[in-house]
Design a protein around this nucleic acid. Structure first.
Lengths: 350, 350
DNA sequence: GTGAAAGCGCTAACAC
DNA sequence: GTGTTAGCGCTTTCAC
């Protein structure tokens, strides 16, 4: 049984080789003879040797630590538990570790260069202390160009949850527009044209990007619903219900609804029932947020969502593998459709 | 603006003092003259110096890293996001960092000493690499004595989310019995005697401890409900509804229900409505799990829950402050009651 | 109150 | 293929 700390030196002695050979074995270097490797591995096993992370960082160039950056105050928009677990799995499988840290976004009013300088100031205490091998930038920070730039300037590898196309170029960050567009497309494909969009109260910019994607798809389908059926952001169940009553009462009403929050989706379902509107026969509902409560509802509410855990795991993987091949195809975003009973064909007559 | 890495040496040169004096300043040592301190602080500010965590660990005895241990496969029982954010706040306020890791619980069939040895084996790769200054043991690992013991044997400070009393002694770990007992007490105080308990399907042992606490309080109140109204664990909304119909149909039925999951609480509320039973007039419902969906329900479902985020932050604080004073009063568990509309006085006639 | 010296455990660079 | 040397950036210990 090993006690407090077995060092590389102890292993070297036990295996009758030099420290360097032990180092080569634990780092999977190629230039080690089979016999030496076996001796070393046996010694490692017997002594219970574990390389010290801090010492590895000191001697070498890697720290075996990844860092995830959360925007201060924006944690509630993220399924952090899911992401944490996915990151842990990916990292521990590769001898890596992950640390989460919060960081304040730059004041919106700043010029780019000022914002970049500010990001540098805020970033330094965090990345300077830990010196991670890579940084995963969590939304909505993934749309903060000054942060990306400050990181690059300091030579820190970074990854977002996904890359997106913009003006024909691949840039980092989730494509919220494409996401909402896909949602709209699902409903259009079911024959809907009068599709409403109900933003959540969380992130205005994100809602805006989504609304654009939604509008794009509806315009393409020749619908004008996007002019009338985009609501003000809805912050709680009560206001969502009020909105539902307002929209569902007139004879000209949406046949399908996209909501950013699960809460709003449930509110629409509830109001529809009290108004004797059948879901999905009279009204289809699609939530952009997936929660267990959607499955419990009657009828179950369909959801189209981004798989944050999976994406986070892949971002970690990318940083670990140092796939520096730029313009890569990986980290492409793919949303997940959870079909339940709330989405169906559009009614014949509107 | 500082580039890649400003070292203590750079600061020492700029301030015209030795490395050691700089070290004393950043570690808040007392034996530094006011003039030297000012010079050093000025240099630190100007150069943007940040102490390197790995180097601090190498030289000194502290690592400025805390580790939270999650039982493999048990992550879903924990509000990890909430805990992560609370831990981050506590740690960053003290120059600390936190890392989460998963660990497999020992096979249940093992003897204590075997289990302890196994824990040591599993623990070593994790704590050996990082060598954290302390470890927060997350439920249900907090009831795993071999883990506590293995940690102590290796001289690693540890903390659980709370301590509890057992046989008059303070031992680490949440007191799930007391928690459920408090829940039962709330309802007893409202006049209820026929109180049902609906376990969740997650953690059998935890359910068992809670049932004991619930039974204790009911026995104290002279009720025999605990003999009849303890359900089999309920794994989804459908089976919860089935149970609710079964329990609420007979003339002798519970006047109050404690559920471990929010899902089951919602199911009971739903079934009660279809059976024309008024909540809380005919049936009170109290959930031991707090989720946003409880607030949205009509009527809102009351919850009694343990504030995991807060408790986690305090556990981190304890480890950072190294409050080694054993038998301490801190880390005492206090549950939070969120009163909504689902809990009321017991009906006159049962 | 301050500084000098010695290391912590590892890897990079180079020699052999 | 293997060993040797020289640090990485800090704290500890001890001398002044």
């Amino acid at each position: 049984m090993a006690s407090q700390s077995v060092t590389i030196e102890d292993v070297a002695k036990a295996a009758h080789v030099s420290r360097q050979t032990v180092s080569r074995v634990i780092n999977h270097a190629t230039n080690v003879s089979e016999s030496a490797r076996e001796k070393v591995e046996k010694a490692i096993e017997e002594l219970g040797y574990v390389p010290n992370l801090a010492a590895r960082r000191m001697g070498g160039s890697r720290s075996y630590v990844l860092m995830a950056l959360i925007e201060r105050g924006a944690a509630h928009h993220l399924p952090l538990g899911e992401m944490l677990m996915a990151g842990l799995d990916e990292c521990s499988a590769n001898g890596y570790h992950i640390m989460f840290e919060q960081i304040a976004a730059p004041s919106a009013a700043l010029q780019f260069s000022e914002a970049e300088a500010e990001m540098g100031r805020v970033l330094m205490p965090i990345i300077g202390a830990v010196q991670p091998d890579g940084v995963v930038i969590l939304p909505p920070l993934d749309h903060c160009a000054p942060l990306l730039s400050a990181l690059k300037k300091r030579g820190v590898a970074s990854a977002c949850l996904a890359n997106r196309q913009e003006f024909g170029r691949t840039v980092p960050g989730l494509d919220e527009g494409a996401f909402a567009q896909t949602a709209a497309d699902r409903l259009v494909a079911l024959g809907h044209r009068q599709i409403g969009f109900v933003p959540g109260a969380g992130d205005r910019q994100r809602s805006q990007r989504r609304i654009e994607g939604y509008r794009r798809r509806l315009a393409e389908a020749g619908s004008r619903a996007q002019r009338h059926f985009v609501a003000e952001p809805v912050s709680d169940a009560a206001s969502a219900r009020a909105l539902a009553r307002e929209w569902l009462t007139p004879t000209i009403r949406p046949t399908a609804i996209i909501t950013e929050t699960a809460e709003a989706a449930l509110a629409f379902a509830q109001v529809a029932r009290t108004m004797k509107l059948s879901v999905p026969h009279d009204l289809s509902i699609l939530s952009l947020e997936e929660t267990p409560s959607l499955a419990d509802a009657t009828p179950g509410i369909s959801a189209l969502h981004l798989p944050y855990g999976t994406m986070f795991g892949r971002a970690c993987e990318k940083l670990i593998k140092k796939e520096q091949s730029e313009g890569e195809e990986n980290l492409q975003q793919a949303c997940v459709f959870v079909e339940r009973a709330s989405t169906g064909k559009a009614p014949r007559v509107v």
